[in-house]
Design a protein around this nucleic acid. Structure first.
Lengths: 365, 365
DNA sequence: CTGAAAGCGCTTACAG
DNA sequence: CTGAAAGCGCTTACAG
């Protein structure tokens, strides 16, 4: 004996369904659905009546039902692997908030970039969850197996700061080259000439781009990039320490060090201070990323701030908005977005010893 | 004209459903369901046949369908608000990995702890998503409105490091008092007597507990806790800097400072070094949390490592495992779990100047 | 040990 | 502008 809940209001305790709303509003469930999905073709008066009942009953459409019946799951996936803590925090906050604003939810999955069956892991997750889109963070955004698995499953994705920007893939990033160029220009404008650079690992996108920016700025100012002032690193603190020991043992020491990321810059800072150097007066140091630790040391680090939160919000929008009509781009070309970074000038950089004032400081105002 | 996909194999392109599996295996969908859910009462031979077809077809049950039909959603929610980056990263990794192992998925939501309608935000999210459980991190785990909203929605939750441990709520934490006691004991055993303490904000759980541990250890060793050596702080770097300036201006300076968290300890470190003190020889410094930055400075910080990942895994298990039969606790009493922390002794602590060797070092072995 | 039927709560084509 | 019907792909009671 099955008791259908089409009688009277509804069974107490259980959450209200679209049927309950339809009955109380005196319309069909289809009309309720139309109102909830902002579909056109509902009389204003009807719409208001439905909305009132929805509010009264505190009706919330169940995600699983919408997902099963319709084409959308209202789920956005965030895939990451061993990211810097700062990265996760920012990306996650931006993505989660933007999702909520749009009635979506953020599902995060932690993967091992080197797992042999990573494509199967992705396939498994995607076919169970059916997310409407996926956000890939480094280094997963450069993992061909992951991207192929997603493409096979016809799941749209956005790459955050990918190594290579392809016209076939949507991506969000900052202009690393330009940012590194600006940092270098800052050092040069302070009067530095012997500027060392600590590189990141060769297999990471950012490494090459940041070095390129450094080199470009140096050459543009007629400064040479000496091989002995370019030190290898791998984005870790210890590699920054090691690089500093090398650099500071040169016959002519650099007056400034630009490390391709903050962790290494912090290593340089620690090493320099241990060697008795005063930062920034004896040695200026600049990093990249504006990690939380950059502001938790003395002197706080001059660095580049990537707008993690904004980048994540943008990524979510690129996955959600295409469903709506209000975007101009009529062709289905995937988009590449470049967001503005911010140069954070703090106390780890100043003019080199014996150099009175910044060289170029003719304000144009 | 509706084309049912009960013909032949299945329509090409579309993902296989339970019906496809049932047909190819020559059983009913109910049997397939039994096999997939590890229900008893399926002949071994039948089970194997079904499993083979599942593998061949790469069949993955769709979450939305399972969720709509059944009592479980296979979704675990993680609620957080502005946590330290290190916290998010660890918690998230542990929770996401444990979820995947169990066929669950982790949905994260970022909330504003001070939002007036936070209970409605939670209610909204829970009634749409229907997660099988929820993990609350500080300070949300101490937010009565959030807890009530969850309880009203009959969504089980686990509190991570809550301020108050209630028998009505499941929780996972470490023993803050004991950990702080051990840090203090370490300093005392090195020979320190004038040990300063930098407190956390009064409204945070950990603050009081850590101070309690500090005080307990001091008193146990017959050392007095002088009011002028206990400085207020708010868990931020600047408050650590400020506290250090106060403490180091006392008539008799402390030889060691124990800060209730790492960010403040880093502030103390930065301030001490700026004042020309050598750490640890002039001043020993200890923190709490083992934040990433603790290892990104020189000297690296002696601190307490909370097993974030393990705590998160445990939290997930406490939400998932009750569904199974294999846990001993027959009564439905919520559980409180206390996990082991780890003392990280690094280079920011040593014996005070003029003190040859650690005072108490009679090894009991 | 196995299965036929009903139902979960929505959206998708249709039809008017 | 509105609605009746079918269906999404599973699990839940049943029944044998």
């Amino acid at each position: 004996m099955v008791i259908k809940n089409t009688a009277v209001s509804s069974r107490a305790g259980a959450a209200p369904t679209i049927v309950d709303v339809a009955e109380q509003a005196g319309v069909s469930i289809k009309t309720v659905s139309r109102v909830l999905n902002h579909e056109p073709g509902v009389q204003e008066k009807t719409r208001e009546r439905v909305l009132k009942v929805v509010a009264d009953l505190k009706y919330r459409p169940k995600l699983s039902a919408r997902s099963l019946a319709g084409a959308r799951s209202f789920l956005i996936g965030l895939l990451y692997y061993d990211p810097s803590a700062a990265f996760v925090a920012g990306v996650q906050k931006g993505a989660a908030l933007r999702c909520r604003e749009a009635g979506y939810h953020l599902v995060v999955e932690s993967l091992h970039n080197d797992a042999l069956d990573i494509d199967q892991q992705v396939e498994r997750m995607v076919s169970a969850l059916r997310p409407d889109g996926m956000i890939l963070t480094p280094p997963l955004c450069d993992n061909a197996k992951v991207i192929k698995a997603l493409s096979d499953a016809q799941t749209p994705c956005v790459l955050m700061s990918p190594r290579v920007v392809s016209p076939d893939e949507r991506s969000v990033r900052i202009d690393d080259v330009h940012a590194a160029e600006e940092v270098t220009n800052l050092l040069i404008s302070l009067g530095h000439q012997r500027i060392a650079f600590v590189q990141g690992p060769a297999d990471q996108a950012a490494s090459g781009l940041r070095y390129e920016g450094f080199e470009r700025a140096m050459l543009a100012h007629g400064l040479s990039v000496e091989a002995e002032l370019v030190q290898a690193g791998d984005f870790t603190f210890p590699s920054g320490v090691a690089a500093a020991h090398q650099l500071l043992s040169r016959r002519v020491k650099p007056t400034a060090v630009f490390a391709a990321n903050d962790d290494m810059a912090l290593g340089v800072l620690a090493a320099a201070q241990r060697l008795g150097l005063s930062v920034p007066t004896d040695l200026s140091i600049a990093g990249f990323d504006d990690s939380p630790a950059a502001n938790l040391v003395w002197p706080p680090l001059t660095t580049v701030c990537q707008p993690m939160e904004a980048m994540a919000r943008t990524a979510v929008e690129m996955l959600i908005l295409p469903n709506r009509v209000d975007n101009e781009t009529s062709d289905s070309a995937p988009q590449q977005r470049v967001l503005p970074y911010q140069l954070q000038v703090r106390n780890s950089t100043c003019a080199p010893r014996g150099h009175a004032a910044p060289a170029i400081k003719s304000k144009k105002a």
